[in-house]
């Protein structure tokens, strides 16, 4: 491969990297130093450390934590069972399939299910529980988020389960370990990398989603993503929006550091 050909191939790609990766991030950082009147200031960061924004960030992180934790709780056994079934490929495809359905449509479906006369209330009324508003609660927000993210948690854990040498489990059982010990001491440590990847795939998006909060939680839940959208598109305070975006990016970096796969010896 000649130098010219190589660099001709790389040129549009490098141009793309500069214009759409480096410059946008620089622009976000740059904008965070300006207030509404276009003055150069650190006000946005000072404002971020005010109780309102700190509380919002804390709540957003708390919700993201809950969503990630519940997803993991549901996904881990699913991945485990899945890796032990006969029709693996087909079942795996069935798990992936919902993740190809447009996010908005899945969220929209829950507007019907959780509605006053929806599926859930109809089900509850069988037990004589009166209909109640489930939409626009924290519960519905967390439930829908878990629903949307669950395939992204199952897949990496499933992959880790598949990579695990089957002989290890049998060896542990033969040597007298109980089922529970096998899970705790063999399977869990060996699938930890998959768990970390899953956490990364769920935690960051659940900090930044804004359409679920708007459609399902009816502005009751404000996440970092909702706040960014609000500042950029509603109040037009780009400086503050950019500041929150920077915080979100920093959180992403921290999460990725934490979730980085530990190199095995």
């Amino acid at each position: 491969m000649t130098r010219t050909l190589k660099w001709t191939l790389l040129a549009p790609y490098m141009l793309w990297i500069v214009v759409f990766v480096i410059i946008p991030i620089a622009l976000i950082a740059w904008n965070s130093f300006f207030d509404l009147e276009g003055r150069l200031t650190l006000d946005n960061f000072v404002r971020f450390f005010s109780p309102t924004y700190l509380k919002m960030s804390f709540i957003s992180i708390w919700y993201a934590f809950l969503i990630t934790f519940i997803s993991l709780l549901v996904a881990y056994p699913t991945a485990y069972v899945l890796s032990r079934t006969r029709h693996k490929q087909l079942l795996l495809l069935l798990i992936i399939l919902p993740s190809w359905v447009n996010l908005l449509l899945k969220t929209y479906a829950f507007m019907g299910i959780f509605g006053m006369y929806g599926l859930v209330n109809a089900f509850l009324s069988l037990f004589g529980i009166p209909a109640q508003e489930i939409l626009f609660t924290d519960f519905s927000f967390i439930f829908v988020s878990v629903y949307i993210f669950i395939p992204f948690m199952i897949l990496p854990i499933y992959n880790a389960m598949e990579e695990m040498p089957r002989g290890l489990i049998e060896a542990a059982l033969d040597l007298g370990a109980s089922q529970w010990t096998v899970i705790r001491r063999v399977i869990w440590p060996l699938t930890l990398d998959g768990v970390k990847t899953g956490i990364q795939a769920v935690f960051i998006p659940s900090l930044s989603l804004f359409m679920i909060t708007r459609l399902i939680a009816g502005n009751r839940v404000i996440t970092l993503g909702t706040a960014i959208e609000q500042h950029f598109l509603v109040t037009q305070d780009w400086g503050m929006g950019a500041t929150i975006a920077i915080v979100l990016v920093l959180m992403m970096v921290v999460t990725m550091r934490f979730a980085q796969a530990t190199p095995r010896a």
Binding site: P24, I25, L27, I28, I204, P205, L207, S208, F210, G225, I228, E229, F232, G241, A242, A245, L248, V249, M252
Partner: peptide, 9 residues
């Protein structure tokens, strides 16, 4: 990168 951040940038 979260898509809100990509969108905003």
């Amino acid at each position: 990168n979260p898509d809100v951040v990509i969108g905003a940038s």
